[in-house]
């Protein structure tokens, strides 16, 4: 399975096949066994780490970019997070979640820390919505591209199952770095309501996407 992750496509080969996959019920390419890669990384396996990088770097960078809204800063955050994955790989525990969620939790916290510490709220608001498009030539793996597009479609479908208020609560907290108290204040709702919206939104999203566990 993971051998296919080695296949590096010619950059230009990326385009159309992925688009036609949208809405497919099953994932296009093989899902790499990230748990295995992470556990090998924990034993100092540099090759496994590189495969892991290939599998998660785009998500880590995209998440960071969405949160910090600055490409250079997103690169710094991604670097910190990805190096931290290497450094702390042995502390990953498969009982506590998947390798992907473990890595993305690290990346999320790094990004939120950065945005909270270095950017004023007004600065974030000013740059809100500015998002650089990526040059296609930089997207290196066809499998990754297909996986991402499939995932984006799936998540979009999942998000459409949420109420506008649930989406708003998730957006404020997960992507804008608000705490649940700040979100409650901003939305002028009781804290308990904010907590419930976040939880209910996650449950709907999880169920709509068929996340297991």
């Amino acid at each position: 399975m993971s051998a296919e992750r080695h296949l590096r496509a010619v950059p230009d080969a990326r385009p159309d096949a992925a688009g036609s996959e949208s809405g497919a019920a099953t994932a296009p390419g093989p899902a790499p066994d990230l748990t295995d890669l992470l556990e090998r990384t924990a034993r100092g396996d540099g090759g496994a780490y590189e495969q892991l990088y290939n599998a998660v770097a785009a998500s880590v960078f995209g998440l960071a970019l969405r949160i910090v809204r600055d490409r250079g800063m997103a690169e710094d955050v991604s670097q910190e997070a990805l190096v931290e994955v290497w450094h702390r790989a042995a502390r990953f525990d498969r009982e506590a979640g998947t390798a992907r969620s473990w890595i993305l939790t690290i990346a999320h916290r790094r990004a939120v820390d950065r945005v909270r510490s270095e950017q004023s709220h007004t600065t974030r608001m000013r740059t809100h919505g500015v998002r650089e498009e990526t040059a296609p030539a930089e997207q290196d793996l066809v499998v990754d591209v297909m996986y991402r597009e499939w995932e984006a479609t799936r998540v979009k479908a999942g998000l459409s199952a949420l109420t506008a208020r649930q989406r708003e609560a998730l957006d404020l907290t997960y992507f804008k770095g608000y705490t649940h108290r700040e979100a409650a204040q901003a939305l002028d709702i009781p804290l308990g309501t904010a907590k419930a919206r976040i939880r209910d939104g996650l449950i709907k999203l999880r169920d709509a996407m068929g996340v297991e566990r």
Binding site: G62, L65, T98, L202, R213
Partner: peptide, 17 residues
């Protein structure tokens, strides 16, 4: 299970670095 949902939100943002 919640973390899987948030991981999916992150994956949907994937952008090639």
């Amino acid at each position: 299970s919640y973390l899987e949902a948030t991981a999916a939100l992150a994956d949907a943002e994937a952008t090639a670095p």
